[in-house]
Write a protein that binds this DNA or RNA. Structure first.
Length: 405
DNA sequence: CCTCCACAGGAAGCGCAGGAGT
DNA sequence: ACTCCTGCGCTTCCTGTGGAGG
Protein backbone atom coordinates (compact mmCIF):
# COMPACT_ATOMS: atom_id res chain seq x y z
CA UNK A 1 0.00 0.00 0.00
CA UNK A 2 2.67 2.48 0.98
CA UNK A 3 4.48 1.74 -2.27
CA UNK A 4 1.34 2.43 -4.18
CA UNK A 5 0.85 5.71 -2.38
CA UNK A 6 4.38 6.89 -2.85
CA UNK A 7 3.96 6.10 -6.51
CA UNK A 8 0.87 8.28 -6.70
CA UNK A 9 2.59 11.12 -4.88
CA UNK A 10 5.67 10.80 -6.98
CA UNK A 11 3.55 10.94 -10.10
CA UNK A 12 1.92 14.12 -8.88
CA UNK A 13 5.30 15.70 -8.31
CA UNK A 14 6.63 14.80 -11.70
CA UNK A 15 3.72 15.77 -13.88
CA UNK A 16 4.53 15.51 -17.55
CA UNK A 17 1.37 17.33 -18.50
CA UNK A 18 1.00 20.39 -16.25
CA UNK A 19 3.63 23.02 -15.86
CA UNK A 20 1.31 25.00 -13.58
CA UNK A 21 -2.29 23.96 -13.22
CA UNK A 22 -3.23 26.89 -10.97
CA UNK A 23 -3.37 29.02 -14.09
CA UNK A 24 -6.47 27.15 -15.16
CA UNK A 25 -8.35 27.74 -11.92
CA UNK A 26 -11.33 30.07 -12.30
CA UNK A 27 -10.12 32.47 -9.58
CA UNK A 28 -6.70 32.93 -11.17
CA UNK A 29 -6.34 36.40 -12.59
CA UNK A 30 -3.85 36.53 -15.44
CA UNK A 31 -1.72 39.53 -16.36
CA UNK A 32 -3.63 39.94 -19.53
CA UNK A 33 -7.34 39.62 -20.22
CA UNK A 34 -7.90 39.18 -23.96
CA UNK A 35 -11.09 40.42 -25.64
CA UNK A 36 -12.06 42.57 -22.70
CA UNK A 37 -10.17 45.72 -23.68
CA UNK A 38 -13.31 47.74 -24.07
CA UNK A 39 -14.63 46.83 -20.63
CA UNK A 40 -11.24 47.27 -18.96
CA UNK A 41 -10.82 50.70 -20.49
CA UNK A 42 -14.30 51.81 -19.54
CA UNK A 43 -13.99 50.64 -15.94
CA UNK A 44 -10.53 52.20 -15.63
CA UNK A 45 -11.83 55.51 -16.97
CA UNK A 46 -14.68 55.49 -14.50
CA UNK A 47 -12.41 54.69 -11.56
CA UNK A 48 -9.48 56.89 -12.52
CA UNK A 49 -10.71 60.02 -10.68
CA UNK A 50 -9.98 58.06 -7.48
CA UNK A 51 -6.31 58.81 -7.98
CA UNK A 52 -6.95 62.52 -7.75
CA UNK A 53 -8.99 62.10 -4.60
CA UNK A 54 -12.42 62.28 -6.18
CA UNK A 55 -15.12 59.74 -5.61
CA UNK A 56 -15.67 57.70 -8.79
CA UNK A 57 -19.23 57.02 -9.94
CA UNK A 58 -20.86 53.86 -8.75
CA UNK A 59 -20.74 51.20 -11.43
CA UNK A 60 -23.13 48.46 -12.32
CA UNK A 61 -21.68 45.52 -14.21
CA UNK A 62 -23.76 42.83 -15.79
CA UNK A 63 -23.26 39.83 -18.04
CA UNK A 64 -23.73 36.06 -18.16
CA UNK A 65 -21.60 33.77 -15.97
CA UNK A 66 -18.01 33.28 -17.08
CA UNK A 67 -17.79 36.46 -19.14
CA UNK A 68 -14.94 37.87 -17.09
CA UNK A 69 -16.85 40.36 -14.93
CA UNK A 70 -15.14 39.46 -11.69
CA UNK A 71 -11.74 38.98 -13.29
CA UNK A 72 -11.84 42.35 -15.05
CA UNK A 73 -13.03 44.13 -11.93
CA UNK A 74 -10.36 42.59 -9.72
CA UNK A 75 -7.75 43.21 -12.37
CA UNK A 76 -8.54 46.90 -12.75
CA UNK A 77 -8.85 47.36 -8.99
CA UNK A 78 -5.51 45.71 -8.40
CA UNK A 79 -3.84 48.08 -10.83
CA UNK A 80 -5.67 51.07 -9.42
CA UNK A 81 -4.68 50.28 -5.84
CA UNK A 82 -1.03 49.78 -6.70
CA UNK A 83 -1.05 53.00 -8.71
CA UNK A 84 -2.56 54.78 -5.74
CA UNK A 85 0.19 53.48 -3.47
CA UNK A 86 2.79 54.89 -5.85
CA UNK A 87 1.38 58.37 -5.56
CA UNK A 88 0.58 58.11 -1.84
CA UNK A 89 -3.14 58.33 -2.20
CA UNK A 90 -5.36 56.02 -0.19
CA UNK A 91 -7.59 53.67 -2.17
CA UNK A 92 -8.84 50.46 -0.61
CA UNK A 93 -10.79 47.73 -2.36
CA UNK A 94 -13.26 45.52 -0.55
CA UNK A 95 -14.56 42.41 -2.24
CA UNK A 96 -17.79 40.84 -0.99
CA UNK A 97 -19.46 37.93 -2.71
CA UNK A 98 -23.15 38.20 -2.00
CA UNK A 99 -23.84 34.61 -2.89
CA UNK A 100 -21.86 33.52 0.16
CA UNK A 101 -23.01 36.57 2.09
CA UNK A 102 -26.63 36.96 1.18
CA UNK A 103 -27.99 38.53 4.36
CA UNK A 104 -27.76 42.16 5.35
CA UNK A 105 -25.79 41.22 8.40
CA UNK A 106 -23.32 39.11 6.54
CA UNK A 107 -22.65 41.73 3.86
CA UNK A 108 -21.85 44.37 6.46
CA UNK A 109 -19.69 41.84 8.28
CA UNK A 110 -17.87 41.23 4.99
CA UNK A 111 -17.22 44.92 4.53
CA UNK A 112 -15.81 45.23 8.04
CA UNK A 113 -13.58 42.22 7.51
CA UNK A 114 -12.41 43.67 4.20
CA UNK A 115 -11.35 46.77 6.12
CA UNK A 116 -9.58 44.67 8.71
CA UNK A 117 -12.13 45.17 11.47
CA UNK A 118 -13.31 42.04 13.26
CA UNK A 119 -16.98 41.91 14.19
CA UNK A 120 -19.00 39.10 15.82
CA UNK A 121 -20.76 36.99 13.20
CA UNK A 122 -24.04 37.35 15.03
CA UNK A 123 -25.52 39.18 17.97
CA UNK A 124 -25.40 42.81 16.87
CA UNK A 125 -28.39 44.71 15.62
CA UNK A 126 -28.23 45.89 12.02
CA UNK A 127 -28.09 49.61 12.93
CA UNK A 128 -25.24 48.91 15.33
CA UNK A 129 -23.40 46.88 12.72
CA UNK A 130 -23.95 49.65 10.21
CA UNK A 131 -22.53 52.16 12.65
CA UNK A 132 -19.41 50.01 13.03
CA UNK A 133 -19.12 49.69 9.28
CA UNK A 134 -19.19 53.47 8.98
CA UNK A 135 -16.51 53.75 11.64
CA UNK A 136 -14.36 51.23 9.79
CA UNK A 137 -14.81 53.19 6.57
CA UNK A 138 -14.05 56.44 8.31
CA UNK A 139 -10.87 55.02 9.78
CA UNK A 140 -9.18 54.55 6.40
CA UNK A 141 -9.38 58.28 5.68
CA UNK A 142 -9.45 57.74 1.95
CA UNK A 143 -11.50 56.14 -0.75
CA UNK A 144 -13.02 52.68 -0.39
CA UNK A 145 -14.25 50.84 -3.45
CA UNK A 146 -16.74 48.16 -2.54
CA UNK A 147 -17.28 45.30 -4.99
CA UNK A 148 -20.57 43.53 -4.45
CA UNK A 149 -20.32 40.42 -6.58
CA UNK A 150 -23.55 38.56 -7.44
CA UNK A 151 -25.44 41.37 -5.80
CA UNK A 152 -28.74 40.01 -7.14
CA UNK A 153 -28.71 37.18 -4.62
CA UNK A 154 -28.54 39.70 -1.79
CA UNK A 155 -31.58 41.57 -3.09
CA UNK A 156 -33.56 38.41 -3.73
CA UNK A 157 -32.92 37.08 -0.25
CA UNK A 158 -32.81 40.13 1.94
CA UNK A 159 -34.29 43.02 0.00
CA UNK A 160 -32.67 46.23 -1.10
CA UNK A 161 -32.51 48.02 2.21
CA UNK A 162 -28.79 47.67 2.82
CA UNK A 163 -27.95 48.47 -0.76
CA UNK A 164 -29.95 51.67 -0.53
CA UNK A 165 -28.24 52.66 2.68
CA UNK A 166 -24.83 51.90 1.23
CA UNK A 167 -25.46 54.02 -1.84
CA UNK A 168 -26.23 56.87 0.54
CA UNK A 169 -23.34 56.33 2.94
CA UNK A 170 -21.31 59.22 1.59
CA UNK A 171 -23.59 61.73 3.23
CA UNK A 172 -22.55 60.27 6.60
CA UNK A 173 -18.84 60.08 5.90
CA UNK A 174 -16.49 62.95 6.61
CA UNK A 175 -12.96 61.69 6.17
CA UNK A 176 -13.64 58.87 3.72
CA UNK A 177 -15.59 58.19 0.55
CA UNK A 178 -17.26 55.06 -0.75
CA UNK A 179 -17.82 53.91 -4.31
CA UNK A 180 -19.75 50.77 -5.12
CA UNK A 181 -19.34 48.33 -7.97
CA UNK A 182 -22.27 45.95 -8.29
CA UNK A 183 -21.87 42.80 -10.35
CA UNK A 184 -24.67 40.52 -11.46
CA UNK A 185 -25.33 37.55 -13.74
CA UNK A 186 -28.97 38.38 -13.88
CA UNK A 187 -29.59 40.58 -16.89
CA UNK A 188 -33.10 41.51 -15.82
CA UNK A 189 -31.92 42.44 -12.35
CA UNK A 190 -31.94 46.19 -12.99
CA UNK A 191 -35.59 46.12 -14.00
CA UNK A 192 -36.95 45.04 -10.67
CA UNK A 193 -34.65 47.23 -8.67
CA UNK A 194 -36.19 50.14 -6.86
CA UNK A 195 -35.70 53.30 -8.90
CA UNK A 196 -33.88 55.20 -6.13
CA UNK A 197 -31.31 52.43 -5.95
CA UNK A 198 -31.12 52.05 -9.70
CA UNK A 199 -30.13 55.66 -10.06
CA UNK A 200 -27.73 55.45 -7.13
CA UNK A 201 -25.98 52.27 -8.10
CA UNK A 202 -26.17 52.51 -11.85
CA UNK A 203 -24.49 55.85 -12.37
CA UNK A 204 -22.41 53.98 -14.90
CA UNK A 205 -23.13 50.62 -16.50
CA UNK A 206 -20.90 48.14 -18.25
CA UNK A 207 -22.18 45.15 -20.18
CA UNK A 208 -20.08 42.03 -20.61
CA UNK A 209 -21.14 40.09 -23.71
CA UNK A 210 -20.49 36.32 -23.87
CA UNK A 211 -17.31 35.14 -25.54
CA UNK A 212 -17.67 33.42 -28.88
CA UNK A 213 -15.84 30.20 -29.71
CA UNK A 214 -12.95 32.00 -31.41
CA UNK A 215 -12.36 34.25 -28.43
CA UNK A 216 -12.53 31.35 -26.01
CA UNK A 217 -10.04 29.48 -28.14
CA UNK A 218 -7.73 32.43 -28.01
CA UNK A 219 -8.00 32.77 -24.23
CA UNK A 220 -7.43 29.07 -23.71
CA UNK A 221 -4.39 29.05 -25.96
CA UNK A 222 -2.79 31.87 -24.01
CA UNK A 223 -3.39 30.22 -20.67
CA UNK A 224 -2.39 26.80 -21.95
CA UNK A 225 1.00 28.18 -22.90
CA UNK A 226 1.99 28.61 -19.28
CA UNK A 227 -0.23 25.89 -17.79
CA UNK A 228 0.89 22.94 -19.92
CA UNK A 229 4.23 21.65 -21.11
CA UNK A 230 4.96 22.19 -24.74
CA UNK A 231 3.42 19.71 -27.12
CA UNK A 232 1.22 17.82 -24.68
CA UNK A 233 -2.02 19.21 -26.06
CA UNK A 234 -3.16 17.61 -29.28
CA UNK A 235 -4.31 20.24 -31.72
CA UNK A 236 -8.03 19.59 -31.45
CA UNK A 237 -8.25 19.86 -27.66
CA UNK A 238 -8.49 23.62 -27.29
CA UNK A 239 -10.95 24.15 -30.14
CA UNK A 240 -13.16 21.43 -28.69
CA UNK A 241 -13.13 22.90 -25.17
CA UNK A 242 -13.92 26.30 -26.66
CA UNK A 243 -16.73 24.96 -28.80
CA UNK A 244 -18.34 23.05 -25.94
CA UNK A 245 -18.20 26.07 -23.66
CA UNK A 246 -19.42 28.43 -26.37
CA UNK A 247 -22.47 26.24 -26.60
CA UNK A 248 -22.97 26.87 -22.87
CA UNK A 249 -23.45 30.62 -23.38
CA UNK A 250 -19.76 31.43 -23.89
CA UNK A 251 -18.81 30.59 -20.34
CA UNK A 252 -15.06 30.97 -20.01
CA UNK A 253 -14.94 29.42 -16.58
CA UNK A 254 -16.46 26.29 -18.03
CA UNK A 255 -13.94 26.23 -20.86
CA UNK A 256 -11.04 26.49 -18.44
CA UNK A 257 -12.51 23.77 -16.24
CA UNK A 258 -12.87 21.44 -19.19
CA UNK A 259 -9.29 22.02 -20.22
CA UNK A 260 -7.96 21.47 -16.72
CA UNK A 261 -9.99 18.30 -16.10
CA UNK A 262 -9.01 16.92 -19.50
CA UNK A 263 -5.39 17.34 -18.50
CA UNK A 264 -6.02 15.66 -15.16
CA UNK A 265 -7.69 12.69 -16.80
CA UNK A 266 -4.82 12.30 -19.27
CA UNK A 267 -2.39 12.46 -16.37
CA UNK A 268 -4.29 9.79 -14.45
CA UNK A 269 -4.27 7.57 -17.50
CA UNK A 270 -0.53 8.03 -17.87
CA UNK A 271 -1.14 9.35 -21.33
CA UNK A 272 1.74 11.51 -22.58
CA UNK A 273 -0.63 13.81 -24.43
CA UNK A 274 -4.11 15.23 -23.91
CA UNK A 275 -6.47 14.16 -26.62
CA UNK A 276 -10.00 14.82 -27.76
CA UNK A 277 -11.33 11.77 -25.93
CA UNK A 278 -10.06 13.22 -22.66
CA UNK A 279 -12.13 16.32 -23.25
CA UNK A 280 -15.20 14.21 -23.87
CA UNK A 281 -14.53 12.32 -20.64
CA UNK A 282 -13.93 15.59 -18.82
CA UNK A 283 -17.28 16.87 -19.97
CA UNK A 284 -19.08 13.85 -18.56
CA UNK A 285 -17.03 13.76 -15.38
CA UNK A 286 -17.41 17.43 -14.51
CA UNK A 287 -21.15 17.24 -15.00
CA UNK A 288 -21.37 14.09 -12.90
CA UNK A 289 -19.18 15.49 -10.12
CA UNK A 290 -21.15 18.69 -9.96
CA UNK A 291 -24.41 16.82 -9.63
CA UNK A 292 -23.13 14.35 -7.03
CA UNK A 293 -21.66 17.17 -4.98
CA UNK A 294 -24.89 19.13 -5.30
CA UNK A 295 -27.09 16.28 -4.12
CA UNK A 296 -24.80 15.11 -1.34
CA UNK A 297 -24.82 18.52 0.34
CA UNK A 298 -28.60 18.83 0.24
CA UNK A 299 -30.51 18.92 3.56
CA UNK A 300 -32.30 15.72 4.53
CA UNK A 301 -35.83 16.70 3.54
CA UNK A 302 -34.71 18.04 0.19
CA UNK A 303 -33.00 14.72 -0.47
CA UNK A 304 -36.16 12.87 0.47
CA UNK A 305 -38.20 14.96 -1.94
CA UNK A 306 -35.70 14.19 -4.66
CA UNK A 307 -35.86 10.47 -3.88
CA UNK A 308 -39.65 10.64 -3.96
CA UNK A 309 -39.53 12.13 -7.45
CA UNK A 310 -37.08 9.46 -8.53
CA UNK A 311 -39.26 6.67 -7.16
CA UNK A 312 -42.37 7.93 -8.92
CA UNK A 313 -40.52 8.35 -12.18
CA UNK A 314 -39.23 4.79 -11.85
CA UNK A 315 -42.53 3.20 -11.01
CA UNK A 316 -44.58 4.68 -13.81
CA UNK A 317 -43.17 5.55 -17.16
CA UNK A 318 -44.05 8.67 -19.12
CA UNK A 319 -46.74 9.93 -16.81
CA UNK A 320 -46.58 13.44 -15.46
CA UNK A 321 -45.58 13.86 -11.83
CA UNK A 322 -47.40 16.48 -9.77
CA UNK A 323 -46.59 18.20 -6.50
CA UNK A 324 -49.38 16.34 -4.69
CA UNK A 325 -48.03 12.96 -5.71
CA UNK A 326 -44.51 13.88 -4.70
CA UNK A 327 -45.78 15.01 -1.33
CA UNK A 328 -47.57 11.72 -0.67
CA UNK A 329 -44.59 9.58 -1.57
CA UNK A 330 -42.32 11.88 0.41
CA UNK A 331 -44.57 11.52 3.46
CA UNK A 332 -44.42 7.74 3.20
CA UNK A 333 -40.65 7.82 2.96
CA UNK A 334 -40.50 9.91 6.11
CA UNK A 335 -42.73 7.46 7.95
CA UNK A 336 -40.58 4.58 6.81
CA UNK A 337 -37.46 6.05 8.37
CA UNK A 338 -39.46 7.54 11.28
CA UNK A 339 -38.75 11.17 10.56
CA UNK A 340 -41.23 13.98 11.00
CA UNK A 341 -42.43 15.24 7.65
CA UNK A 342 -42.78 18.90 6.73
CA UNK A 343 -45.88 20.58 5.34
CA UNK A 344 -46.84 20.64 1.68
CA UNK A 345 -46.18 24.37 1.63
CA UNK A 346 -42.60 23.69 2.61
CA UNK A 347 -42.21 20.87 0.09
CA UNK A 348 -43.41 23.28 -2.56
CA UNK A 349 -40.45 25.50 -1.68
CA UNK A 350 -38.08 22.53 -1.65
CA UNK A 351 -39.24 21.60 -5.14
CA UNK A 352 -38.44 25.14 -6.26
CA UNK A 353 -35.01 24.87 -4.70
CA UNK A 354 -34.33 21.61 -6.53
CA UNK A 355 -35.43 23.32 -9.71
CA UNK A 356 -33.05 26.24 -9.26
CA UNK A 357 -30.25 23.79 -8.59
CA UNK A 358 -31.06 22.15 -11.90
CA UNK A 359 -31.61 18.74 -10.30
CA UNK A 360 -35.19 18.62 -11.53
CA UNK A 361 -37.21 20.45 -14.13
CA UNK A 362 -40.57 21.77 -13.07
CA UNK A 363 -43.18 23.66 -14.97
CA UNK A 364 -46.39 25.24 -13.81
CA UNK A 365 -49.37 23.96 -15.77
CA UNK A 366 -53.11 24.05 -15.50
CA UNK A 367 -55.16 20.93 -15.97
CA UNK A 368 -58.40 22.82 -15.99
CA UNK A 369 -61.05 21.00 -14.05
CA UNK A 370 -58.29 18.96 -12.43
CA UNK A 371 -56.50 21.86 -10.90
CA UNK A 372 -53.31 23.76 -11.30
CA UNK A 373 -50.02 22.21 -10.35
CA UNK A 374 -46.41 21.75 -11.26
CA UNK A 375 -45.26 18.93 -13.45
CA UNK A 376 -41.92 17.66 -12.34
CA UNK A 377 -39.17 15.75 -14.08
CA UNK A 378 -35.92 14.43 -12.74
CA UNK A 379 -32.94 16.08 -14.42
CA UNK A 380 -30.15 13.91 -13.06
CA UNK A 381 -28.91 10.48 -13.91
CA UNK A 382 -29.71 7.50 -11.76
CA UNK A 383 -26.06 6.72 -11.07
CA UNK A 384 -25.35 10.28 -9.89
CA UNK A 385 -28.28 10.12 -7.52
CA UNK A 386 -27.26 6.77 -6.08
CA UNK A 387 -23.65 7.76 -5.70
CA UNK A 388 -24.59 10.97 -3.93
CA UNK A 389 -26.91 9.25 -1.48
CA UNK A 390 -24.96 6.13 -0.66
CA UNK A 391 -23.05 7.63 2.27
CA UNK A 392 -25.99 9.15 4.08
CA UNK A 393 -26.51 6.94 7.12
CA UNK A 394 -29.97 8.32 7.77
CA UNK A 395 -31.18 7.05 4.43
CA UNK A 396 -29.73 3.55 4.50
CA UNK A 397 -33.03 1.73 4.93
CA UNK A 398 -34.62 3.33 1.89
CA UNK A 399 -31.53 3.17 -0.26
CA UNK A 400 -31.71 -0.62 -0.40
CA UNK A 401 -35.15 -0.08 -1.84
CA UNK A 402 -33.65 2.19 -4.50
CA UNK A 403 -31.28 -0.46 -5.71
CA UNK A 404 -34.00 -3.10 -5.88
CA UNK A 405 -35.82 -1.16 -8.53
C1' DC B 1 -69.88 32.06 -19.38
C1' DC B 2 -69.16 30.30 -14.86
C1' DT B 3 -67.24 26.96 -11.55
C1' DC B 4 -64.12 24.86 -9.10
C1' DC B 5 -59.92 21.85 -8.78
C1' DA B 6 -55.22 21.46 -6.89
C1' DC B 7 -52.25 23.54 -6.14
C1' DA B 8 -48.76 28.22 -6.22
C1' DG B 9 -46.83 31.32 -3.52
C1' DG B 10 -47.23 35.68 -0.29
C1' DA B 11 -47.41 37.19 4.68
C1' DA B 12 -46.82 36.65 9.34
C1' DG B 13 -45.07 34.56 12.94
C1' DC B 14 -42.84 30.83 15.92
C1' DG B 15 -38.91 28.50 18.19
C1' DC B 16 -34.39 27.77 18.14
C1' DA B 17 -29.26 28.71 17.79
C1' DG B 18 -25.70 31.68 18.59
C1' DG B 19 -24.34 35.62 19.96
C1' DA B 20 -23.93 40.86 22.28
C1' DG B 21 -24.57 44.10 25.93
C1' DT B 22 -25.63 45.23 30.67
C1' DA C 1 -28.59 36.15 34.87
C1' DC C 2 -31.15 38.58 31.87
C1' DT C 3 -32.81 40.93 27.73
C1' DC C 4 -32.32 41.75 23.05
C1' DC C 5 -30.58 40.93 18.37
C1' DT C 6 -30.57 38.25 13.62
C1' DG C 7 -30.88 34.21 10.57
C1' DC C 8 -32.98 29.94 9.54
C1' DG C 9 -36.24 26.30 8.85
C1' DC C 10 -40.59 25.75 9.34
C1' DT C 11 -45.90 26.22 10.06
C1' DT C 12 -50.33 28.42 9.59
C1' DC C 13 -53.34 30.99 7.14
C1' DC C 14 -54.30 33.03 3.25
C1' DT C 15 -55.46 34.78 -1.57
C1' DG C 16 -54.75 33.91 -6.43
C1' DT C 17 -55.35 31.41 -10.80
C1' DG C 18 -55.56 28.74 -15.95
C1' DG C 19 -58.58 26.31 -18.09
C1' DA C 20 -61.65 21.61 -18.72
C1' DG C 21 -66.02 20.52 -17.97
C1' DG C 22 -70.62 21.70 -16.94
Amino acid sequence: MSDKLSLIFKKALTSKIFKNREILRPDYIPDELPHRDEQITKLAEILAPALRGYRPSNVFIYGKPGTGKTAVTKYVLRRLVSEAININSIVRDIYVNCRDRCTNYSVLEGICLGLGKEVPFTGLSIPELFRRTLLALESIEGLAILILDEVDSLIKKSGDDILYQLTRTNTNLRKSKLSIIGITNDLKFMEYLDSRIRSGLGEEEILFPPYNAMELENILSKRALSAFYEGVLSSSVIPLCAALAARDYGDCRRALDLLRISGEIAERENSPIVEEKHVRMAQIESEHDKVVEGIATLPLHTKLVLIAIYLIEKSKKNVTITTGEVYNVYKNLCKKISFDFVTQRRVSDLINELDTLGLINSKLISMGRYGRTKIIKLAVEERSLKEALKDDVRLQSIISQLTDL
